[in-house]
């Protein structure tokens, strides 16, 4: 069953990872040609015009985008967070619901295998692909950055690891939600909604101290990029919270799925 699940989800893995890889390869390829002394100067001038809150939102207050690595730490990282988040959410919401939408659940649930075992196998495959996409992007960007110039390797490693935590939380949350849904019709909307609302809340929380509390409602707070850039270390509370949330969501998914009416 695991083999079949890997095969079934390979296509979407290739598509999503290709989107990120193509984007980064293109950026890294053209960045050296864009960045002349003149453009760097005008870029710095432009940054001074932007309000500090906006710069903070993209981490541009603590990093400069006049290098490829600087771009990766600000805008590039935003794309990594969003795309791995959407990919993980789609995996979470569809991995069980697809069987119900395709009506293959009647066949699957009659095989001599327990429901919790079906769920375990699907979770193993999904987590492997989530780790896989992070690893693949990490390796591709590492090669591209090595070619294009010098960068802080420890900081880079931490940056590449950090999206894994919100991704796994998003996967688990969507998995739990899918156990309440009857069909896959609303699944894409729900998944995208969770990712974008979460990201929006995370961005808004950076804008003003008055709404700083919003960050506690966003899973993207768990990828504490500012902490990594400022201290070259990963935030332990974020890891702990990610693990706890994932365990809670997955545990409830098992409970719900065992009770769920499948047709």
């Amino acid at each position: 069953m695991i083999k079949k699940e890997f095969k079934n989800n390979l296509k979407s893995f290739i598509i999503w990872s290709s989107v990120l890889i193509v984007m980064f390869v293109l950026v890294f390829a053209i960045y050296p040609f864009i960045l002349t002394d003149e453009t760097v100067e005008s870029l710095d001038e432009m940054m001074k015009v932007f309000p500090p809150e906006l710069l903070k939102t993209f981490n541009m207050d603590i990093t400069s985008i006049n290098t490829a690595y600087g771009w990766l730490k600000s805008e590039g990282f935003m794309f990594i967070l969003l795309i791995t988040g959407i990919y993980s959410s789609f995996l979470g919401i569809n991995i069980l619901l697809k069987e119900e939408s395709d009506k293959t659940i009647e066949y699957l649930s009659f095989l001599p295998i327990k429901r919790c075992s079906i769920l375990t196998k699907k979770i193993i495959v999904s987590l492997t692909y989530i780790l896989g996409i992070a690893l693949l992007i990490g390796v591709v960007n590492f090669i591209a950055l090595t070619i294009s110039g010098d960068f802080n390797r420890k900081e880079y490693l931490l940056l590449i690891i950090s999206p894994i935590f919100p991704s796994i939380v998003l996967f688990s949350l969507n998995l739990l939600i899918s156990t309440f849904l009857k069909s896959g019709k609303k699944s894409i909307g729900i998944s995208l909604g969770i990712v974008f609302i979460s990201y929006l809340l995370s961005m808004l929380s950076e804008v003003s101290e008055k709404v700083e509390g919003l960050k506690y409602l966003s899973v993207y707070t768990l990828a504490d990029v500012r902490h990594i850039i400022e201290f070259t270390s990963i935030s332990i509370p974020c890891i702990v919270i990610s693990i706890i949330l994932s365990i809670v969501f997955i545990t409830f998914s098992y409970i719900r799925y065992n009770k769920k009416e499948l047709v």
Binding site: N8, D102, T104, E106, Y107, F110, L111, R115
Partner: peptide, 22 residues
């Protein structure tokens, strides 16, 4: 029906057969 031995001892043909199309 969560007992694997019970499942192994039963064969089921649904009225509408839906299998993996690929």
């Amino acid at each position: 029906m969560s007992d694997i031995k019970v499942k192994e001892s039963i064969g089921y043909l649904p009225s509408e057969v839906n299998l993996y199309k690929e």
